[in-house]
């Protein structure tokens, strides 16, 4: 019961700070728990996938109803990333279970990936309203566009996808990594949607949530089939994250994101270093 209470409180805190910092809950859940708890990395990743799914299930309906995203925008992208997310789930479990030091390799790779994510987050600028290029063939064919009311400027904005061919290749890679590490993929989806497909930042965040909603269940089945989704971890984590994200969303209306974002990134930097050290020590046989 102690572990369940710990996971619940841990996820509650992550749920609160995730919307405030703009760093996804899945990205915090897996590396932090791997770094600072003794739970097997496979079970954490299984829980992480379910947490990412639950977060997107909670948040997507409102974003869709407000017009910030729609099915036309995501389905062409999903078609590609579903395949790679599935492959990624298998690859991650294969490495950790088939090799003697597999789970240490996964921990090390998780640390390196987190360091890379932090690098991306600190070097890319988010643009609120990028200038869209002309529509390409894929965008025109599937009508990857939409319209929504943007209260911060008090008017309706129209958005449409640009550079879809390059974006599709990027999403294939993102799906693989997300499936492999059970991370969710907002950290990569949002920059691709905002800076490559030139979608306004809130449209990019909403579209990323819908992408995660539609391709996480596939990765979740891989983890479930291999027995890596433990109810003792997953249920308290989902409950904590759901309640936390409601509180966090309320706080975004009152608090400036800059300082919280920097603080969260600092904690993640420590988690990345801890995972790298843990992984290297495990591979070298030093425990």
């Amino acid at each position: 019961m102690e572990m369940e209470a710990f996971i619940f409180l841990f996820s509650l805190v992550i749920g609160i700070i995730a919307p405030l910092s703009g760093v996804g809950g899945g990205v915090m859940f897996v590396p932090l728990l791997t770094a600072f708890s003794g739970i097997n990395v496979d079970y954490i990743r299984g829980g992480g996938v379910m947490v990412a799914l639950a977060s997107s299930l909670t948040s997507s309906p409102t974003a869709i109803k407000r017009g910030f995203t729609n099915l036309r925008m995501v389905l062409p992208l999903i078609l590609i990333s579903n395949l790679t997310a599935f492959g990624g789930g298998y690859l991650g479990l294969y490495i950790s279970r088939e090799f003697p030091e597999g789970k240490h390799y996964i921990t090390l790779m998780l640390g390196l990936l987190l360091a890379f994510i932090l690098f991306i987050m600190s070097t890319t600028e988010r643009v609120e309203f990028p200038e869209p290029k002309g529509r390409d063939k894929i965008c025109s064919f599937f009508q990857m566009e939409g319209e929504c009311f943007e209260p911060s400027i008090g008017k309706d904005i129209r958005y449409s996808a640009s550079n879809t061919t390059i974006a599709l290749a990027m999403f294939a890679f993102v799906g693989l990594v997300a499936g492999m590490f059970g991370l969710g993929a907002g950290w990569a989806n949002v920059p691709v949607l905002n800076l490559v497909m030139l979608l306004p930042i809130r449209v990019a965040v909403a579209t990323s949530m819908l992408i995660i909603l539609l391709n996480t269940s596939i990765a979740a089945w891989v983890y479930m089939a291999k027995g890596a989704v433990l109810p003792e971890i997953t249920v308290p984590a989902i409950l904590g994250m759901t309640i936390g994200s409601k509180i966090g969303a309320e706080l975004t209306l009152r608090v400036s994101p800059r300082i919280i974002r920097s603080a969260v990134m600092f904690i993640l930097l420590i988690a990345a270093a801890t995972n790298i050290i843990k992984g290297v020590m495990g591979i070298a046989g030093i425990t």
Partner: peptide, 19 residues
């Protein structure tokens, strides 16, 4: 400028009343 990053899943009514 009030620096804000309100996520897209906050309801429009709440966002408008905060503004």
């Amino acid at each position: 400028i009030r620096e804000m990053e309100i996520p897209p899943f906050v309801s429009e009514e709440k966002e408008m009343s905060a503004y």
